[in-house]
Each structure stands twice: as C-alpha cells, then as structure tokens.
Amino acid sequence: MNIFRLFGDLSHLAAIAILLLKIWKTRSCAGVSGKTQLLFAVCFITRYIDLFLHFVSLYNTEKVMKLIYISASVFTCYLIFFKFKATYDGNHDSMRAEFLIVPAAGLACLINTKFDAIEILWTFSIYLEAVAILPQLFLISKTGEAETITSHYLFAQGSYRALYILNWIYRYHYESHVDTIAIVAGVVQTILYCDFFYLYITKVVKGQKIVLPA
C-alpha cells in the first residue's frame, strides 16, 4: 500500500459518502444520474464477485472496503430509483447505458489477461468503470449546471482514479508491478474528467457554481 493508493481509496470513499449525504440530506437526487450509479454498482459487484463465491472472514480492511463499496452503491441506487424516485431527473438522464455496457463486455472478451470467467468479469468491470461517469457528465451538459455538492462528488470521484495513476507509477518504479488493462482504462477514465476538473478548479474553488456552456 502506498500513499497514492491510500488517498485514492479515501477519495473514492469520500465521493460515495458525499453523494449519499447529498441525497439523504436534501431528500432529492436532482442532478444525479441514476444510470451512472447503476453502472458503478455493476462495476463493484462484477469486480468483487469473489466475496460472494467463497465467503472469507472479514479479516482485513480490503474485504470490508469491498463490502462498503457494494452496499453503499446499491443503497444509493435504492435511494435514487425507489425512495426519492419522484425527484429523479429521468428526462435528462437519457444517455443509453447499453452503449457503454455492451462495448465494455465485448472488449473484455477480446482484450483480457486470462480468458476465464472471473478475469473477464474483472476486465469488464474495469472497462465499464472507465466510462461509467459519462451519463452523469451527459446529464450535467443537458441541464447546463451542477449543484456545488454534486461538483464536490465529481471532483472526489475523478481524483480517486487520478491518484491511482500515481499509485501505478509508484508501483512500476518501486515494485515493478504493472497491470496494463487497469492502467489504460484508468487513464481514459481520468481524461474524461479533464473538462470538469478545469471547470471545478476555475469556478467551484472560487465559490461559483458550474454553469454550462462554460
């Protein structure tokens, strides 16, 4: 474990917590893409499927973190699609998720480290996570604005994989560890946030709200 991965995971936890708090406190999921949250839930379930296959005692933090990610993302989807369904902005959350899921699944079958079920599910999860934020970014471009708290959520969510890139550089240099598929997907994922990062740093940090077109 290195500082980059530690802060990456903390940033990811923070993002999940910020979104849950926003929805719970405001009792509204306005401005939040339910599709992105569904895609994240699918990512966690397919990536941590080993938790279900052979139950292991929660002896280390990694198992606990995996369970937190899965339960928090499923609970977030429950809040969006059931509890606060009336506030879900379905009209603007209109990006076709199938256009993300099918290519990710196809690519996972073509480009993977090992052609076995668990590995293909993991690869699918990595590819899907790289593009899972697109419905959320699409929704913001349709509504033309993002609530400040949602911007903080996006910043934490984007920073998590950016920090993982530093972690991969660190591990390549000191542990000669390489996970090409995760690295390529992680770079693509972080690039998708660049536009938002620019808006966040030039606007939200100064207390302004993000309004598109910038």
């Binding site: 991965r5 995971d9 990811h12 990694e62 973190m65 995996k66 990610y69 480290t113 090992k114 590995e119 993991w122 993982y164 972690n167 390549y172 000669s176 560890h177 390489v178 996970d179 090409t180 995760a182």
Partner: peptide, 10 residues
C-alpha cells in the same frame, strides 16, 4: 515488469 494476473487493488 510482468503483467500480473492477481489484481490486488480495489
């Protein structure tokens, strides 16, 4: 550096 098959990250 070999591409490792064991994914030890979240």
């Amino acid at each position: 550096a070999s591409d490792n098959a064991v994914h030890d990250e979240l």
